[in-house]
Design a protein around this nucleic acid. Structure first.
Lengths: 201, 201
DNA sequence: TGCGTATGTCAACGCGCGTTGACAAATGGG
DNA sequence: CCCATTTGTCAACGCGCGTTGACATACGCA
């Protein structure tokens, strides 16, 4: 999973599953849940560790500290193989929102971006990861730089809708059925993709 | 200005301007700037007070604490008389973004909402204020509950675009001229307002 | 001029945080 | 069985935070 340990050399005995991997995953799961709801600075390691009943000190041992844990979470969360598959990435993304089985996980990542994007400690890291693992590959699949405004608008409506529905919880978008929300979202996404930038070059 | 002092009875000598008012406004200005960039929990009173050279303790004296300062800031920031004037509120809002003179102040408020919306300490307060001072009045002007989905989508694209441009700074929306951004924004707002919810009642 | 109030300064408190290192317990190959 | 390594526990540290109360100074009216 995360290759960002790099402070300690772990000599792998590859046949057996190291016991510590279980603890690491417990922490990673709890951390992901936390960072998708509150921002880096607001999340405390003590809170992350208490939930699965793990000692706080183990975070520093296994991830090198709070920042290491955050980065390991990003590795997990941005691993979206479906998005980079052969299909049209936009269609895949819309399907992710509409399908109730995957919508939750997908929405969590959106919320993670919303919540942590403005955090002074991790904003730059998040932006960099976002570009390298999502924006740039999707741009490449959408036909290069020309699609940049449309992709940006696509992400804008996606994030904005998520914020209004889940964070601000405004009437007209938060108190409706999932299908109604999906219709609103699809309408906005269509508009974002249909936009034609004048004098593109 | 803020009527939320209410712990200390200030006997007004209305002819003269109390000296403390100057200090209060210094703190309020610095606080507004801070809360529009970082969330409540990330902002420190020491930082707010140091900027205009005011002692930290005066925050607690004049505003009753950090929360009182935040609420006083909300009073200031949500006082948008133009928005509630006779004109079409949506047109007024679009003009606010387009006009370079007012765009900055307006955008600051948007960023304040984005940044503080997910903060666990002030999220509820912000949501309540948002509804009572912006959403409900605008809904009333737009023709009642039927307009709720459109208003929610309008706010969604507004917030989302602001986040993509100013917080995430993605290519295609952050590296463009203000006019190009205004065109994108207007396109999305048009789509938001044009949406027709099926079986409205 | 004197005095009560308004205003500002300062040091200290308790709290929760991330991190560290010493130590105990469990584990597993020789 | 033994002992080196892995894994977990615990207490302590330094730090920055919001808040408080005691104290010093400035002000304005009598």
């Amino acid at each position: 999973m995360s290759t960002r340990v790099d402070k300690w050399v772990i000599r792998d005995t590859p046949t057996v599953m190291r016991k510590s991997e279980i603890t690491r995953e417990k922490l990673l799961t709890s951390a992901t849940r936390a960072f998708c709801v509150q921002s880096y600075s607001n999340v405390s390691l003590r809170g992350i560790a208490k939930d699965p009943g793990v000692d706080v000190a183990l975070v520093s041992r296994y991830f090198g500290g709070k920042m290491g844990l955050f980065q390991a979470m990003l590795d997990d969360v941005f691993a979206w193989p479906e998005m980079m598959s052969g299909d049209d990435p936009v269609e895949v993304a819309i399907a992710k929102y509409t399908d109730p089985d995957t919508a939750d996980a997908h929405m969590s990542v959106i919320r993670m971006i919303v919540v942590n994007g403005a955090d002074p400690e991790v904003g730059d890291i998040l932006r960099e990861r976002l570009r390298e693992m999502l924006v740039d590959p999707m741009l490449a699949k959408m036909g290069g730089e020309r699609a940049a405004p449309n992709l940006a608008m696509f992400i804008a409506v996606t994030l904005g809708a998520a914020m209004v529905r889940h964070t601000l919880r405004l009437p007209g978008m938060a108190d409706t059925q999932p299908e109604a929300y999906a219709m609103q979202l699809r309408h906005l996404i269509d508009a974002a993709l249909r936009f034609e930038s004048p004098a593109s070059e």
